[in-house]
Design a binder for these strands. Structure first.
Length: 283
DNA sequence: AAAGTAACCTGCCCGC
DNA sequence: TGCGGGCAGGTTACTT
């Protein structure tokens, strides 16, 4: 589920609430999510740590802790992180489709507020890295698409030496970090590029469209709080829906008419992922 | 070596 | 009403 805009929305929400707070207790209901350390060591190191900073790299959260460790979280397909400050209420999130039995790890702060890791499908992963270390899979991520180093020149250079189709290119986290299936579909539709086009076949002007749309769409999606689809499985840290879904052009809209040319939208599979496109607009 | 497929999970929706 | 199949925002490991 969560792509860069959703992760960033959750990050911003948590940042307002938990910076400087000290973890006093950890409740672990599902230890399988913790990847690199024993449950015992996980909780004993976290207890007493406070949250100094929350960073994001691609779809990864990096919670920088004082005095020393890094808590890394990847949400997989269905993970969310909720913040709650209502200790009397037992429900994770009343009136939502988020179920309490999928709360897997709860971090309690000294003021009785808490951060809840909830994940129906449990594809999410959590690491606790000692002494400010980071992860190889984070080190090998590609460009941060909204960062200053991601210039058009560097993007075009990468495209020219890539033999795969442009959709796979955009979704490969080693090229650009943070784009998933929804945003890849939307970027290519608004750029008028067929998802199966070979990356190295794209002209300067086509590449420019993709570059600008990548940045614009991700920025706009963050402003709108990310995408909550009809199943409402994505909510931000405060339990709020994102509204980028209302501006989605093609993702999930097979058979509906193209908003630009009225032709029916088509669906194909690329790398086993559903890919939506307009046969009239995307060449 | 690139490309395809299965696996990890739960839940929902659809057709029969 | 229920059962089976297919599908879902991601990633990785194993096959050909």
């Amino acid at each position: 589920m969560p792509e860069l805009p959703e992760v960033e929305t959750i990050r911003r929400g948590l940042e307002k609430e938990v910076i400087g707070k000290r973890i006093v207790k950890i409740q672990i209901k599902n230890y399988l999510l913790i990847k690199n350390i024993s449950v015992h060591e996980f909780s004993s190191r976290l207890k007493g740590s406070s949250i100094k900073n929350i960073k994001r790299r691609g779809k990864f959260f990096i919670f920088v802790l004082a005095p020393r460790d890094n808590l890394i979280i990847h949400l997989g397909m269905s993970g969310i992180i909720l913040y709650r400050d209502d200790p009397e209420k037992t429900k994770a999130l009343p009136f939502s489709k988020i179920k309490e039995n999928h709360n897997h790890i709860i971090f309690f702060f000294e003021d009785n507020s808490r951060m809840i890791y909830n994940d129906v499908r449990r594809f999410g992963k959590i690491w606790l890295l000692k002494n400010g270390k980071t992860l190889p899979c984070i080190e090998s991520l590609g460009f941060e698409p909204l960062g200053y180093k991601f210039t058009f020149e560097s993007f075009y250079g990468l495209l020219q030496k890539n033999k795969k189709n442009i959709k796979s290119f955009l979704m490969n986290q080693k090229n650009i970090a943070g784009i998933g299936n929804i945003y890849a579909n939307e970027i290519l539709f608004l750029s008028g590029i067929h998802p199966l086009r070979k990356s190295n076949s794209l002209t300067f002007n086509e590449a420019k469209k993709i570059y600008l749309n990548t940045r614009n769409i991700l920025r706009q999606a963050i402003e709108l709080g990310g995408t909550t689809m009809n199943d409402e499985s994505y909510l931000d840290s405060g339990g709020k829906k994102g509204s980028f879904g209302e501006t989605i052009m093609v993702y999930g809209k097979k058979g509906r008419n193209c908003p630009l040319c009225e032709k029916p939208l088509e669906i194909i599979k690329i790398d086993n992922r559903s890919t939506f496109l307009c046969p009239g607009c995307q060449k």
